[in-house]
Write a protein that binds this DNA or RNA. Structure first.
Length: 811
DNA sequence: TAATTCGCTAGACCGA
DNA sequence: TCGGTCTAGCGAA
């Protein structure tokens, strides 16, 4: 290779970025190597999109030729055209010199009568490049590059080739902004910290901190910014993590650098702040900016974590079970002005970047697995949604299999789809009361396995073969799916399911705690996320592969199988206590655990394809309650189970809900524990009475009385002003920022008449200022009474000890 | 404009 | 003031 001047580079693909230069749109490819990040430039890849055509006289080939002669705005021309054959049929592929020209033609080509549809015309150029070359971000890559870093050829590395560990760090800033929100035009950065795996530093201008070992004292603010950028470069970081860097730290440091006449440049240019769909994002050219706040929002939606509040303190408490100290705005300003406690402030700054790094490290394997599976960059994956992940995966697959990628639907189509929702699961009303020996069984990955087993996919729907119409893939909706050729979606699901089992298997065999094992576990988790998201996207109105009929068929099959299994269970002599979507709760008459196993086995023999029933376990006792409004009906989606080892599982009850105060939840859990472990309510009643007494005597700390609820729209848009909205409005009047997405922690105080009037933000409520009557009548009693009611107790019994004597002595 | 629908409940709101 | 209805949020799957 040396003789031709071509270098052969191996590394990990970090990013691809499009840039318009002269008459060309080129692509910058960023690769992490042992020497650091290298940038290569691809100038041979041409932008393109497809059109489908229909014309009575002219053939596609002639139409393609004709289009070449057309002139569009600004004299724009199509640079090349050809007819290609996708699985959906022939299409005309139009090439362009650059992306702006593609955009002009894509908007104007509709004017020709023979143009029916445009395809793949909105795919970002950088994404296009990754798809067409089969590249995998955060995975090994080979680049053959000329001496000037232009790409000669590029290809993904063989999968068995080890990928180097990415180098990651995290940064955090502190500002001086007395009395108001910091604005980069006026308020300086006073401290900046950078954390790397075993080290963390703080840059600051204050001489007083010279003795603090982790502080680097510099002469002015510009040197703070430059020092930080230099350290990122010196450590060759591939990933820089922040906490809310998209909206705060990075736009701030960029603007501040401009004001000071310097730059925050870690090697390939200034930070780029982009307005994305809903909010801004900040890109550091070359380096992957991982905003942990965005990442946690995603992981929360994917149910990998369950976070309520997203400030760094709450996150630390929830993820690491650690308390983190916090400097409030005014404390930071005060410390800076007086110079008292500067070292503590520096430590706080250092701690923030260290915690951010830990959050990033905790989920890095999973996010990287998703990058590789969906072929999106870390930057993209960490800011995406479940829908985007599946969509990205399918776009890559579609290209690889020779399908044309369906376009995103028009707003009109979206609206009409929204008007027509899909019928979902079957939920059986439970028999309320205390039950013993409950066996729980469920269908493993029910929706995905139905889709695989019945070949459910948009492209197999109502196929032309007459045999398929009456075969095994005829859904209860009377639509059918091809029994001869595997569908696009179903085949991918099949592969994902197989890969997931393999990954889980290999993880078990790998060395415990090794990098390999963690990687395999993350892969399995990533695959599970994708698997579980497929059905949802099929029914998502904005999805490229939306198919109402396919989604309807999936749920119809699901209802069929669960009802069938219920019937089989009853035939086998079990009583089916409850069922929701894919699970069954069985009450044994005389049967033993082995009989349940035999039953599961017998059902599995009858189930098609990859569908599988699984025995989850037996519980010594369980309780179902009646609905609060219609007292005779059993409440669905609400139960508590206790196994022989006294482990308690609580589902759906107030205990698992954030919009009930901690005291009510704790009391409810206590009640459930008592009644399930003893089968009788005496101890539970005593606990409730004690709690009520404590409330009346003002002994309960305010933090145990806070109720959390989210503000989900602009405050002025509420038709009904509930307590959380009222509390938020009052807080805004006091100068606090409360917008869409913020979580209100409110307490019902003594002041006011309606509940909303009494509601105040927890932080404004002094100890003892709570409405005890409200908490008794609206929190404690409602949380426990319908459990105790299953033992024949009424509210009067509970409050006044009516049945005390008959239930035994308990004072 | 961020995967789905089903189900439960509190508290405001509204009209008699 | 009462009872029915509507709005809103959260959780299960």
């Amino acid at each position: 290779m040396m003789n031709s001047g071509i270098r052969n580079i191996q590394g990990m693909l970090l990013d691809v970025e499009a840039e318009h230069m002269g008459m060309q749109t080129v692509l910058h490819v960023y690769v992490s190597t042992e020497q650091g990040i290298e940038r290569f430039t691809e100038a041979k890849f041409e932008p393109y999109f497809y059109i489908s055509c229909q014309d009575k006289e002219l053939k596609p080939k002639e139409l393609a030729r004709r289009l070449l002669e057309e002139r569009f705005s600004g004299g724009t021309r199509i640079s090349k055209s050809e007819v290609v054959h996708k699985k959906e049929g022939p299409l005309i592929k139009l090439y362009f010199r650059n992306v702006p020209e593609l955009k002009i033609v894509r908007d104007e080509v509709k004017r020709f009568d023979f143009v029916r549809q445009r395809y793949e015309h909105t795919i970002p150029f950088a994404r296009r490049y990754i798809i067409d070359n089969g590249l995998k971000p955060m995975q090994g890559i080979h680049v053959h590059a000329n001496a000037d870093q232009t790409i000669h050829s590029i290809s993904p590395a063989a999968s068995q080739q080890p990928v180097p560990e990415p180098r990651m760090g995290a940064l955090d800033l502190e500002m001086f902004s007395p009395g108001k929100m910091a604005s980069p035009e006026h308020n300086p950065i006073i401290m900046a910290s950078l954390a790397v795996p075993r080290n963390a530093w703080v840059w600051c201008t204050r001489k007083e901190l010279e003795q603090v070992d982790f502080v680097k004292v510099v002469e002015d603010e510009a040197k703070i910014i430059e020092g930080l950028a230099h350290a990122i470069r010196a450590h060759k970081l591939d990933i820089v993590a922040t906490y809310n860097g998209d909206r705060f730290d990075l736009p701030y440091i960029k603007k501040r650098a401009e004001v000071l006449g310097t730059a925050f440049d870690v090697g390939f240019g200034k930070v780029k702040v982009q307005k994305r769909q809903l909010h801004a994002s900040a890109r550091i050219p070359g380096v992957q900016h991982l905003d942990c706040y965005q990442m946690l929002l995603l992981l929360n939606r994917l149910q990998v974590v369950n976070l309520i509040k997203f400030d760094l303190e709450s996150v630390t408490a929830s993820l690491f079970n650690e308390k983190k100290f916090k400097f409030r705005f005014n404390e930071i300003n005060q410390t800076w002005e007086t110079g008292k406690g500067l070292a503590d402030l520096a430590r706080y700054n250092q701690d923030d970047s260290m915690v951010t790094l830990r959050v990033a490290e905790k989920y890095l394997d999973l996010v990287i697995a998703l990058c590789r599976l969906t072929r999106q960059t870390l930057f993209e994956v960490s800011r995406s949604s479940a829908g985007q992940l599946v969509e990205a995966l399918l776009m890559n697959e579609a290209f690889a299999q020779g399908h044309v990628i369906p376009s995103t639907p028009s707003e009109e189509t979206v609206k009409s789809r929204q008007m027509n929702p899909i019928t979902a699961a079957y939920v059986k009303e439970p028999l309320p009361g205390l039950h013993e020996n409950i066996a729980v069984i469920d269908f493993r990955s029910m929706y995905p396995t139905i889709m695989i087993s019945h070949n459910i996919s948009g492209d197999t729907l109502d196929c032309a073969h007459s045999e398929c119409k009456t075969g095994k893939n005829l859904a209860p909706t009377n639509h059918w799916f091809c029994a001869k050729e595997t569908g696009f979606m179903s085949s991918i699901l099949d592969r994902i399911l197989t890969e997931r089992l393999e990954a889980k298997d290999s993880a078990k065999k790998a060395v415990k705690g090794s990098g390999e094992q963690k990687e395999l576990e993350a892969k399995a988790q990533g695959l599970k996320i994708l698997l579980n998201s497929f059905y949802g996207t099929l029914a998502y109105p904005r999805f490229r592969w939306y198919s109402r009929d396919a989604a309807q068929a999936t749920t119809a099959f699901a209802r069929h199988y669960i009802k069938q299994t219920i019937a089989w269970a009853e035939e086998a002599g079990f009583h089916v206590l409850y069922s929701d979507t894919d699970s069954l709760f069985l009450l044994a008459n005389k049967q033993k655990k082995e009989d349940v196993e035999l039953f599961v086995e017998s059902v599995n023999k009858k189930l098609p394809g990859r569908m599988e029933l699984e025995f989850k376990g037996v519980y010594a006792r369980g309780i179902f309650v009646t609905k609060k409004n219609q007292g005779e009906r059993g409440a669905k989606k609400k139960y508590a189970l206790m196994d022989a080892q006294k482990n308690l599982t609580i589902v759906g009850f107030e205990y698992v809900r954030r919009d009930w105060c901690a005291l009510a939840k704790k009391t409810q859990k206590g009640v459930l524990e008592h009644v399930l472990s003893e089968g009788a309510p005496e101890k539970a009643i005593r606990l409730v009475r004690q709690t009520i007494d404590d409330l009346k005597k003002g002994r309960i700390p305010v933090k145990d009385l806070a109720i959390l609820k989210q503000i989900r729209r602009p405050l002025r848009k509420y038709a009904a002003i509930g307590p959380h909205v009222a509390a938020a409005k009052k807080a805004v009047a006091r100068g606090k920022e409360m917008g869409t997405g913020s979580v209100v922690a409110y307490v019902i105080t003594k002041k006011g008449t309606t509940i909303s009037e009494k509601a105040e933000l927890e932080e404004f409520v002094g100890e003892g200022n709570y409405d005890a009557e409200y908490y008794i009548q609206h929190q404690i009693v409602p949380a426990v009474i319908y459990i105790l009611a299953e033992f024949g107790l009424s509210e009067t019994d509970l409050m006044h000890g009516g049945k005390q004597s008959s239930l035994g002595a308990f004072a």
